[in-house]
Every structure is written in C-alpha cells, then in structure tokens.
Design a protein around this nucleic acid. Structure first.
Length: 322
DNA sequence: AACGGGTGCAACCGCGAATCC
DNA sequence: GGGATTCGCGGTTGCACCCGT
C-alpha cells in the first residue's frame, strides 16, 4: 500500500513563490497560526501543497529569520558542531538563532566544505587528509592500503587541482607523479615536491602536515586562516596560502620560514584584538569556545590526540541536544 | 555582446518519526 | 495496537545570477 501524496499534484503550483503568495501565506499564518499545514493553502487561497507552504514559511517568511551573510562566529559554530554532529542540520541550525537548517546546509555545501578541503581538511571527518592517509596505513594491511590510499590521494589531488586550476597556478609546478613503487601514502609529501624542488611540504616526520607549516595556522582556533575574514586569509603561512591557491606555490623554504616569523608577530596582535572583541559579549560563543585553548594550541600542530573539536560543554549549547 | 561554466540559494522529493484517531 | 496522517529532516535539483572568455 503506497503512501498517499500530501496533495493533488495536478492542482498545485510549483516553483518560485510570488510576493502575492507570500503575502497570502504570511497574513493567514499571522491570523491562524501554523496548525495543520494541509489545510493552510486551501484556507489561505493558495494553489500550493501544504509541504511547500511549510517550507516557504520556515525557510523564508518566518519573521525571526536572519537573512544575509553568515558571520565568522556563525561559521565557526557550524564547523565545530558539524565535526561532532555531522549532517544534522536542524541541530546545528538550532545553535544559530535566525538560521534555518536549509541555510546552514546550503552554506556548508557551497562554502565551508570547499574551504575545509582547500585547507587540506577532510570535511567529513574534520581531520587532515594526511592524517587520514596515515590512519589507513596503520589500520589496514597491504594491498588494501595501497588501493585505499590511492583513492584518498586521488580525492585530495582532485581538490587541489581544482583549486590550483581556478587560481591559475601552473599545474606543472607541482609534481603529482604517480605513487612511488611501494605505494606508500606516507611518501605523498615527496610527490608534492615541485619541479624545482623549492617547496617541500614535509615536516620531517614522514607525513605532510599543513598544520606544521605556520604557527599562525591551526584548525579551529581563532588564529587560523579559516573564515570569511580576509585578515585571516592573509595571515596564513605562504605555504598554506599556496596550498589554498592564494599564493605563489614556488615560495622557497627560506621565504616560508621568514614569513612564519612574521606570522607569529602578526598573530599576537591579532589574537589580542579578537579577545577584546569576544569580551564584548554577544553571540560569539562558538569563537570563544575555540579560543579557550588558544595559547596551548598555538605552539603545537594538529595531532591525533587533538580533541578540542569534541570538547563541547553542555553550557556551550544554545539548544541542548539529547 | 554573446556564450558557457560556476556558484548560490530556493524549492522539491522521499523517507522515517511522531502524532492522531 | 495499528493504520492513517502529518511533520520534520537531509539529500538533491533547478534556476537565476555572476563572471571570465
């Protein structure tokens, strides 16, 4: 027995809502409330199905909705909660007054996911790609390792190629040569050496870590380059900037080191500014949560044991989750 | 100016959960 | 208790707009 449709499709209008329809719906709901969505379009004189009306109301017409750009603080809240909740958009949206699950979902899919990928972070697990590849090698046995690692590597490459292509960085500047004969993903860093050998994304421990490439960069902290704020974009280390497609990928090691020193100096002033901003109160909770461990975090790289993303206190939640 | 690809967002779809009767 | 109905959620699609060529 099939489910009956929520409405007769033949008599129902679809697509964009007109201002007249919006007015009808809004004024009807203002008078009668939102009980029984099935009856609302009929009573309001709309050729729409109840579901469409509910969607229009909850995602657009509701008077308490906030329209416009997401703030840095909102962005950080989304990332933070997504790392814990995954694609539970309604729960994440519940932490952002005036934002709908649809808003959050769209923002994640169109902006944040790409931003994280561009930073070398897997948007699903919120772990660095290099970390994931290291996990593969430690948890699986060959030949599974080589196959999975190459698949993961492929995704990472695609993302980078996409970014680099968009930013018009010559692809021949990076050697995405085929994996080495041992198919060891830990050697990926060697493959990322550019043709001239001027840039080597290698922390010396055998695993490429974006997190090691500049003290001004640490995922989830106020000092990261993450966020809409171009101040942060600019404060990422040159290597990270190159990685994100914003800089010259041919940056030399010496230049990188010098720039990192500059980063440290800039960062101190920047962090103080942000602390001041945060102390003014308001809805900056997400930022503040991630700022708490800033001092400890600043001097260390992102590690396997970095649990800050999961360090959610019940009091930090606007709407407590079950 | 025309075209094509990319992007962002509103809206739709299908499913499971919750509620009603 | 169980079927019918409604609601809410997450994934997906369609389209308007933007921007580079």
């Amino acid at each position: 027995m099939g489910r009956i449709p929520c409405c007769e499709k033949e008599n129902v209008k679809r697509g964009q809502w007109t201002p007249e329809e919006d007015n009808k719906l809004a004024s009807y709901i203002a008078q009668h409330g939102t009980r029984n969505w099935r009856l609302i379009p009929k009573n309001a004189g709309l050729q729409r199905c109840g579901k469409s009306c509910r969607l229009r109301w909850t995602n657009y017409l509701r008077p308490d909705l906030k329209h416009g750009q997401f703030s840095d603080a909102e962005e950080h809240v989304i990332v933070k909660f997504h790392s814990v909740l995954g694609n539970r958009w309604s729960l994440i949206a519940a932490q952002l007054p005036g934002r709908t699950d649809n808003d959050v979902k769209n923002y994640w899919n169109t902006k944040l996911k790409k931003k994280l990928s561009g930073m070398g972070i897997d948007p699903v697990t919120h772990k660095p790609f290099s970390h994931l590849m290291a996990e593969i090698t430690t948890t699986l046995n060959p030949p599974q390792v080589s196959h999975l690692a190459e698949a993961a590597l492929g995704c990472f490459k695609d993302e980078m190629l996409h970014l680099l292509t968009k930013k018009r960085v010559g692809l021949n500047q990076i050697n995405f040569s085929s994996p080495n004969p041992n198919h060891n993903p830990n050697n990926f860093n060697q493959n990322v050496d550019n043709e001239a050998g001027k840039m080597k994304l290698d922390n010396g421990n055998g695993i490429m870590k974006l997190w090691d490439m500049g003290n001004g960069f640490s995922y989830g902290s106020s000092s990261s380059s993450f966020g809409n704020d171009e101040r942060h974009e600019g404060s990422a280390s040159p290597a990270v900037a190159a990685w994100k497609g914003h800089g010259d990928i041919r940056t030399s090691v010496a230049e990188t080191a010098a720039a990192e020193e500059e980063e440290k100096r800039k960062l101190k002033g920047e962090v103080m500014d942000q602390e001041e901003i945060g102390s003014e109160g308001g809805r900056g909770d997400g930022m503040m949560m991630m700022r708490r461990h800033h001092d400890q975090r600043q001097e260390r790289a992102f590690s396997v044991d970095d649990n800050d993303l999961w360090d959610l206190q019940a009091d930090d939640l606007i709407n407590h989750m079950v």
